[in-house]
Design a protein around this nucleic acid. Structure first.
Length: 382
DNA sequence: ACTCTGATTCAAGACGCG
DNA sequence: GTAATTGAATCAGAGT
DNA sequence: CGCGTCC
């Protein structure tokens, strides 16, 4: 669930903290990505017709591999250096929330069998999507794939979002890319949304800077965390009748949850019993993460061509020509981005009018040619 | 009348051919 | 023995 | 673009 309504709250109250950027402007940047959410979405949507998905000869699902493979190549071709973060054990506080979700899944499973009896195709597809689960095997498959591609992987001790934020705080990556707003609450200094969208849709990348958010809301980080807890997070209930707007007002007025509790009308607002807001706060403020020394070095290497063929083609039935071509793409992308990095500084905003230095000329000519192919007489909707 | 919350529902990838 | 989404959009209804 | 395919 992330933080309830946080996007809208920020759009309304801290618009200057969000900026639109072009996908291309992240060339050469190291970006931390939470893997679990992506895998989940791939399983739901990639190659799905009814309850069928992409599978290998043994009948095991391969949608997540197809999705992860193509998406990662797209990032590499854009000169982005992704590091994928996998979830570890969820914190205790999250378990009751997870129990709720479990029962929802059970409902969906019932709905699904009902839809099967009736034979309503649309319902079957709809409900089957809701029963999707990410297994350990799916996660292991993706880690293996990424390592073969030369892309670094980190297994977080607990929440992946928290580990992403830590990497960004310590400067090991430029930003965290996710659709989950929790990243900000964990204190990721720079946070990107819709990094993955631009290919299929025309949504620009939305960049958030936590320092600007705090500045514009006129809050310190501790207060921002309290605001998120009051708005509604995964770790504990919120106070009935208080949403984002009211929470912001109250925090500005009283400064902390403790002071709010002392000052609000308890007849009007029912405070949950044994409300563990302090523990929730601690999870956001000091989450369990690996320090730089505790996780493997973040390094981007050459793809293991033989390994990729074995894994994707031999074990999972991928088309060998496609895989071979994809490997070429990875190698080309790697050369291009490592060259570019050595020869120039990259500013957050790429501007096309900058004079080009001699050595780059042939290169950028190639790039321009590629981009030109995409040029279209694009009209907005009517 | 207006503001806010909370419940409900929905959709979700990436590519290339024509 | 082992998995537990999200947020955006929309609407109804309560509170101010 | 719209649509079928990827495995």
């Amino acid at each position: 669930m992330g933080i309830k309504g946080l996007t809208k709250l920020l759009a309304d109250n801290a618009p200057k903290a969000m900026k639109e950027h072009k996908f291309e402007s992240y060339f050469g940047r190291k970006i931390a990505i939470d893997a679990s959410m992506s895998i989940y979405q791939f399983l739901i949507v990639v190659g799905r017709v009814g309850t069928d998905t992409l599978t290998n000869e043994a009948g095991e699902v391969t949608s997540h591999l197809q999705g992860m493979f193509t998406r990662t190549i797209r990032l590499l071709e854009a000169g982005i250096k992704p590091v994928y973060i996998f979830d570890g054990q969820p914190p205790e506080l999250k378990k009751q929330e997870l129990a709720k979700r479990f029962s929802k899944r059970a409902d969906a499973t019932e709905d699904l069998s009902e839809a099967r009896e009736i034979g309503n195709k649309e319902d079957i597809e709809k409900f089957s999507k809701r029963t999707v689960k990410v297994t350990k095997q799916h996660n292991e498959d993706c880690k293996r794939l990424l390592r073969l591609m030369g892309v670094p992987v980190i297994e977080a001790p607990s929440e992946a979002e928290a580990q992403c934020a830590a990497l960004c705080k310590s400067g090991q990556v430029y930003a965290v890319a996710s659709e989950d707003m929790d990243s900000l609450t964990f204190g990721a200094p720079r946070f990107l949304r819709h990094l993955m969208d631009p290919s299929s849709r025309k949504v620009p990348v939305m960049e958030f800077e936590i320092s600007k958010i705090l500045e514009e809301l006129n809050l310190i980080m501790d207060q921002f965390i309290d605001l998120c807890i009051l708005s509604g997070c995964d770790y504990c209930e919120s106070i009935r009748g208080i949403g984002g707007q009211t929470a912001l007002k109250l925090i500005r007025q009283h400064g902390s949850i403790e002071n709010i509790l002392e000052n609000i009308n308890k007849e009007r607002y029912q405070i949950p019993e044994n409300w563990p807001y302090e523990q929730a706060r601690e999870l956001f403020k000091n989450p369990l993460v690996f320090s730089e020394k505790e996780h493997p070095e973040i390094k981007w290497g050459a793809p293991d061509e033989e390994g990729l063929i074995t894994f994707l083609v031999n074990e999972n039935g991928f088309n060998i020509d496609r895989v071979t071509k994809a490997i070429e793409k990875i190698k080309t992308a790697k050369n291009k981005s490592s060259q570019g990095r050595l020869e120039s500084f990259f500013k957050p905003v790429a501007n096309t009018s900058t004079p080009i230095k001699r050595k780059e000329t042939s290169e950028s000519a190639k790039e321009t040619a590629i981009k030109k192919a995409k040029a279209a007489g694009g009209k907005k909707k009517k």
